[in-house]
Design a binder for these strands. Structure first.
Length: 584
RNA sequence: CGGGGCGUAGCGCAGCUUGGUAGCGCGCCUGCUUUGGGAGCAGGAUGUCGUAGGUUCGAAUCCUAUCGCCCCGACCA
């Protein structure tokens, strides 16, 4: 491809709307253009990147035995009403009416459609297991689209849905999808982690998210320094330290005028924040619950929702807290509470001796409280958010670290939720109806493009991993309009490289060399070959890898070797990096 | 949805406080010179100042409404 024949509208200045580097560079490099909030057009260069991602995804899905289909974007409301999600999904579901005033929505995901397909077509256990996937545009009417491709309203996703007679069969496909994702993201040249994730209210036994590591990531992920344990914040845990063994001191009430914060309390009483039990009032489906946490710990609301087995949970307002406990915020404590108020403690709270808490009266706190002696031992669950430096729950040696990640994939065991709601069953070996068990597996295809840029760029532009680059090699023909020799040699090299299987962008524009170099760097092709009179006179090619700062002069044989090594070399490196991660 | 900010040429911005109908840089077009890291000189084109009302002799500027865009916002008792 010649640069004069492909539309690459680069921008010298950074558009004001772009915050993230990936967004800035994809705009500046002419990969994407914004149409409206959260809606982007893929320009010729961007589309080439997208197609390459799709290719890898498709190959790995096919390899895993999944079968490609393509389902409609527009979906009838009836299906969503059956699953209950027409009401539940909320404003993210873009609803519309056709000319007959019938309700439809734009598909944010396809569980309903695929389940409907399965119940129409699959009737026998002999047809299972089966796994269908598609690569398709989704629409979610995000509250706040941002970061360009990272959180758009319209985006491209690979989603797969598997159907099984039993959980054991689901486990096999789940594992095969997990493996396919490992291969996919490795091949894409991304530094990523598979993390254990919470399944939420739907249930199911296992769920993993695949995160590309990047400081700009929207999610915090926890990983062990020693073993391969990794989890998201909702799921991550750390073992509670051994219960304290101290001589029990006499409980007492201490005046603490105006002291409402844990830090203030610790300072006033001259104790560590870890010796304080803080009491948090939450409302679950409008019912109040008291949660107890150590003063130096933080509450994770999702863990709490799970522990209380509710869908939604929120912090009470100070007014609500006072109404429920009779004490102002800051002085609420577990001793002498109204009996009707359920109490749930974090596991770490149970191991405390001689702790301090609010006394359920303004300006008063307890010190030296002890379980059983002064108040009953409450039920307990893991409620606290892990912090960097915590012990790993899986191995003895490691400590947990927190990094930022961009979620690019998710594998999930749906179980029988949709089969039940939508009546998907088949006849088993004994001729009886059996509910089908499902799994679902997503990859954010368009998001991968942005995530790759977040991970691979420098001050001059993008540095594409070999598998994603819109062109493998860029040829810069210097002053080609003035030198027929350069023009001819560059074109000939272009043709030979394409014949050798590389995709090549030949910059034949009538531009100054500086402009050509700047363009090549910005759009991030991994390999650059310069053709000039100077170089031709020496009968060599001038080569430079995108990451390098120096040119090297190579014979054509050496150049070919360099390109081959560069491409596979990159893949090997990523593979190795991945293995190091996997094996810790 | 709440809070903050911004809409002026394709892009980045100034002008607005103190009303007198528009300017800079990049980009674009033409010519000449230049030519290994986003060139120089000269000339040129491009705006119903987001939209709609209002105030005024007169509005980019003041007022109102509306639309669009960007940023922040679950949480420590």
């Amino acid at each position: 491809m010649r640069a004069s024949q492909i539309f690459i509208p680069t921008l010298k200045e950074t558009p004001a709307e772009a915050e993230l580097v990936s967004h800035q560079l994809l705009l500046r490099g002419g990969f994407i253009r914004r149409l409206a909030s959260g809606l982007y057009t893929w320009m010729p260069l961007g589309l080439r990147v997208l197609r390459r991602i799709e290719r890898v995804v498709r190959e790995e899905m096919d390899r895993s035995g999944a079968q490609e289909v393509l389902m409609p974007v527009v979906q009838p409301a009836e299906l969503w009403q059956e699953s209950g999600r027409w009401e539940k999904y909320g404003p993210e579901l873009l609803r519309l009416k056709d000319r007959h005033q019938r309700d439809f929505c734009l598909g944010p995901t396809h569980e309903e459609v695929i389940t409907d397909l399965a119940r129409r077509e699959i009737h026998s256990y002999r047809q299972l297991p089966v796994n269908f996937y598609q690569i398709q545009t989704k629409f979610r009417d995000e509250i706040r689209p941002r970061f360009g491709l990272m959180r758009g309203r319209e985006f491209i996703m690979k989603d797969a849905y598997s159907f099984h007679m039993d959980h054991a069969s689901l486990e096999i496909t789940y594992q095969s999808m997990y493996d396919a994702y490992q291969r996919t993201f490795t091949r894409l040249g991304l530094d990523f982690r598979a993390v254990e994730a919470d399944n939420g209210a739907i249930g199911g036994k296992r769920s993993h998210e695949f995160h590309v590591l990047a400081d700009s990531g929207e999610d915090a992920i926890v990983s062990c320094s020693h073993c391969d344990y990794a989890a998201n914040m909702e799921k991550a845990s750390s073992p509670a330290p051994a219960a304290e063994q101290e001589a029990l001191l006499e409980a007492a009430q201490v005046a603490t005028p105006g002291i409402r914060s844990v830090n203030g309390q610790a300072k006033h009483l001259g104790i560590a924040t870890s010796k304080i039990v803080k009491t948090v009032l939450v409302l679950a489906e409008d019912k109040p619950y008291l949660l107890l946490l150590r003063g130096d710990d933080s509450l994770n609301l999702i863990k709490a929702a799970h522990a209380l087995q509710v869908d939604e949970l929120r912090m009470a307002t100070p007014e609500e807290a006072e109404a429920a406990t009779g004490a102002p915020v800051g002085f609420i404590g577990p001793k002498n509470l109204p009996e009707s108020l359920p109490v749930l403690a974090d596991l770490r709270v149970l191991g405390l001796c001689n702790f301090s808490s609010g006394a359920n009266m303004a300006d008063l706190h307890w010190i030296n409280l002890n379980w059983e002696r002064d108040l009953p031992r409450p039920d307990a669950a893991d409620l606290r958010e892990v912090t960097a430096g915590d012990a790993c729950p899986h191995c003895q040696q490691g400590i947990l670290g927190i990094r930022r990640g961009i979620e690019v994939g998710h594998v999930f065991q749906l179980g029988q939720t949709y089969s039940e709601k939508m009546g998907l069953s088949v006849l088993d070996e004994s001729g009886r109806d059996a509910l089908v068990t499902m799994g679902c597996y997503g990859i954010g295809v368009s998001r991968v493009a942005a995530a790759a840029v977040e991970q691979h760029f420098d001050d001059r532009g993008i540095i594409w991993p070999a598998a994603l680059t819109p062109f493998d090699v860029g040829i810069v023909a210097i002053h080609a309009r003035k030198s027929p020799e350069v023009a001819a040699a560059a074109q000939a090299l272009h043709d030979r490289l394409e014949k050798a299987g590389y995709s090549v962008l030949l910059d034949d524009r009538d531009e100054r060399p500086g402009v050509q170099f700047a363009t090549m760097d910005l759009i991030g092709l991994p390999h650059r070959v310069v053709v000039s009179d100077k170089v031709l006179a020496q009968n060599v090619w001038e080569y430079r890898a995108r990451r390098a700062t120096e040119n090297t002069l190579l014979s054509e044989t050496e150049l070919m070797a360099q390109l081959a090594a560069g491409l596979s070399g990159a893949a090997d490196q990523e593979q190795q990096k991945h293995q190091e991660q996997a094996h810790g």
